[in-house]
Design a protein around this nucleic acid. Structure first.
Lengths: 196, 196, 196, 196
DNA sequence: GATGAATGAGTATTCATTCAT
DNA sequence: GATGAATGAATACTCATTCAT
């Protein structure tokens, strides 16, 4: 299995650095190879083509993302606690790897539709995680009984994503993790109490 | 002023069609020129370069966006009503122009960081609109007194954007406008009532 | 019609020179462009791709070949005279353009099967010319009544081709045209008179 | 001597199969190694480089060619009989090995000038064989006394070669061997009796 | 103002060959 | 002898932009 060989991960990590530092469109294969300390041709022993490198970056890193968050969540009992942990971990992981934050929030979005569809496949695991929390919360009466799961997930994901992207576009000038409680509160209670 | 000449708008509209139908990376200047019924060189009498076309597409269309929404909002008194109208109009405008929806939600996101920063400039008008509603609502005690304006705006924008993008990626199969009330409710009340 | 524009012929002629002087596999598009005095991109305004250049070289030059020979033949009455003129002209045209001789006899043969099939299409005109002479000669009792047209054509073409190729591979050291009468005699009478 | 070791012949035979089935330009060393059941590197224990494989293919196979024909010819007394046997055997050997026919008539011709010169070296043995028959025939008054040996050889070889190549390009649809008598007759008597 | 022919910089990928094991 | 992972040079083609007419 190629994915377990050291050079596979070496190239993935090199790709994250090169994309973060040069931008998506200036991340030539030869630059990635140089950063990884291998020959250009070696790349193609581990990846089909350039797109395969990019989708693999996303798969590996986002996989780790979901995995880490799943572990943390498992320890919590209530859906509300799980949701908070998710937001906090999400922000924390991005905060801990500035390169990764740039790559996932800005650079990989420049990929074409085809690649974006593949990225969406990877994101489905994350979506499921959110959906499970929401379902859980509805059953426990932690969340509103008429909560639309899909819309709820889009609100949660959209809010986290927009918050993270703004933070990256502002050059990560402020502390993202410390925003977690307020963001969480918005997800739980919205802007105000008056309903329609 | 070039922006008022007929060929200017002609080229903008051609760009929207070409990008929607061919995708961002297959939207060559020559294709846009052909669609607009002008020669390649003519494009450069009205636009600095290709990026200028794209940013102009966004500016013109999003300008119209903000303008229309502003008009509708002005008629409403409460911040809550304004917010609802905003969400509904946002979804309605995208629903009414499928090409525009594809271009703004999917294709223009593939642009590079520099162009995205310029797009963000254009979006500032929209951000201000949201901020005004939120400030208004805080003063009127319609929204929570400790509401963080920036985060609130990111929640609102992120939720609308994610909802709209999902709809486009699902090939606009369902009715987006009818989701407005539920999305609005999420913004106002979140997923549930239990606070931390 | 692009084939009538001056740059079209300019590029064709440049290709012949570059291929003859550098060999088929060292005839890069950029070299042909430089030789033709145009930019690399200009090539693609007149030709689909590299293969299109090569097939066009063959089509244009071989077309001229067949045309010239047809003119000369038309003036002759007997099939035997026509055959002699054909051999002589064939050798003469190659002798007059050393570059062309190298390209058609050696370099273009290195092309892949697909291109070679297209080249064969071009050669069909030449085959027809030979077939007409042979049919003519059979009817006039100039040639053997049991002559197989296809085999006769292959003998004539194979002999001319092998003779010309040998001459090119020997660096055109001797006079090809002066071999025409002897080659012609071989075609007409073979090696000797004793039949089986 | 490496040529006598089993893997040497194993690789040669693998090369013929791979070239015939994939074409000259798709016959990578790694494919030949796989077909031969050895590692890529092993190839280089038996051959200098890829060109050496190809020239060896030609040398081995064409050597067998000349050898077989020489044996058959030795049994005949007259030059005319020898010539006929040569044509018939030539066609028969190609007919019996379709892969070899494709490789020698089509694929190996795509090699570059340098390799073709080396192939010509190999063909010299064949040329000598033909020359001996022709000289023999002139001395015995079987052939015309003014027969030019070189041209005669080119006519004979060119005719056989063109006939064989046409047969291969027509996907070996008809029986090549049965053409031998008519081809032979053309070599001996040409198209007709009228001389110049 | 309008045209469109011409420009030329920039890059993913293949595959013969090597050499440490 | 045998292996096969690693190497790295080499090249066709696109398309935003210009400028002579």
């Amino acid at each position: 299995m190629k994915r377990n060989k050291p050079k596979y991960k070496q190239i993935i990590d090199a790709a994250v650095i090169v994309i973060a530092e040069n931008g998506y469109h200036q991340a030539q294969v030869s630059k990635i190879a140089k950063q990884a300390g291998v020959a250009d041709g070696t790349i193609y022993l581990y990846f089909e083509n350039k797109e395969d490198i990019l989708i693999s970056v996303f798969r590996e890193k986002m996989g780790m993302f979901v995995e880490k968050i799943q572990e943390m969540i498992a320890e919590k009992d209530s859906a509300v606690d799980k949701l908070f942990v998710m937001v906090e971990r999400h922000f924390q992981i991005l905060s801990e790897d500035h390169h990764l934050a740039i790559v996932t929030q800005l650079e990989l979005r420049q990929s074409n539709k085809e690649l974006r569809h593949k990225i969406n496949e990877v994101l489905k695991d994350y979506s499921q995680l959110i959906d499970e929390i929401l379902l859980d919360g509805k059953e426990n009466n932690e969340f509103a009984p008429d909560l639309d799961i899909r819309l709820g997930r889009q609100m949660i994901f959209g809010t986290m994503d927009e918050t993270a992207t703004s933070w990256v576009m502002n050059e990560q000038k402020y502390d993202l993790v410390s925003l977690a409680p307020a963001v969480f509160k918005l997800m739980l209670n919205g802007c105000g109490s008056r309903s329609r």
